[in-house]
Amino acid sequence: MNMNRSDPIHYIIVPGYQNSGPDHWQTLWEKRLLNSRRNQPSSWDHPEHDDWVIALNRAVDSTTDPIIFIAHSLGTITVAEWARQYASDRIIGALLVAIPDVQRPDLPEVIQGFSNPILEPLPFPAIAVLSNNDPYAALSRGRLLAERFGAQIQEIGNYGHINHESGLGEWEIGLKWLDQLIQFNTQQHQSGKTRTG
């Protein structure tokens, strides 16, 4: 992926619980992607559902460019909840990494506000990246949630919660899924022009 090009696509980074620190691949991508910004709720340490979703809507409203969401962990649920409440034809795709099982019985009290998501297909293309040994979601549950969101599933092996502790660095391989979302949008756009031309 050519990270130095002038790209009309706006990337919205959507971290999970407690935000993504300096060594997290999301933070490193944010520095490299020229047209990107981070979702900024006010309740990182005690996530409030409406605060996170409304903050994401502010980020969407801040640009007129086409948008790709780059979401991790609780951020993936935030994207799905945003899509249920709001609409924008500028969303061309979402990368959903390490979808957590927010319906599990031992869900921490601090994120109970996200424990009842509406599991329905997203109105835009999505790729879900799952780890075989994610401590916050059994692989079978990750698959189920991804399928309910209508996402294409990519399983990457034993990488825990696919965060800074997973040793991914700038996660160059992960960038290929952004390219897939861009290419899919380009193909759809060209197909639409062909049908209407």
Rank of each mutant, 00 (worst) to 15 (best):
A94K: 00
A71W: 07
H49F: 04
F114Y: 03
M3A: 14
Y86E: 13
D51R: 06
W44K: 09
R195W: 13
L34S: 12
D45R: 13
Q18T: 14
T196P: 06
Q85K: 12
P117Q: 00
L139K: 02
T64C: 09
Q190P: 01
W171L: 09
V60Q: 05
N163S: 13
H161N: 13
W29I: 03
W44G: 06
G167H: 07
T76K: 00
F114L: 05
L107A: 05
T196V: 15
S88G: 03
D179Y: 09
P41D: 07
I99D: 02
H164Y: 14
N158M: 11
L122M: 11
D65C: 02
R90P: 10
E109Y: 12
W25V: 10
L122Q: 07
L28C: 08
I13S: 01
D89I: 14
Q187E: 09
W171C: 13
L178P: 04
S62N: 10
V110F: 05
L145K: 03
E172S: 12
N116Q: 05
V79C: 08
M3R: 13
G174W: 04
T27Q: 01
W171I: 12
N39D: 05
K193I: 15
Q154F: 09
N39I: 09
I118T: 15
R104F: 02
A55R: 00
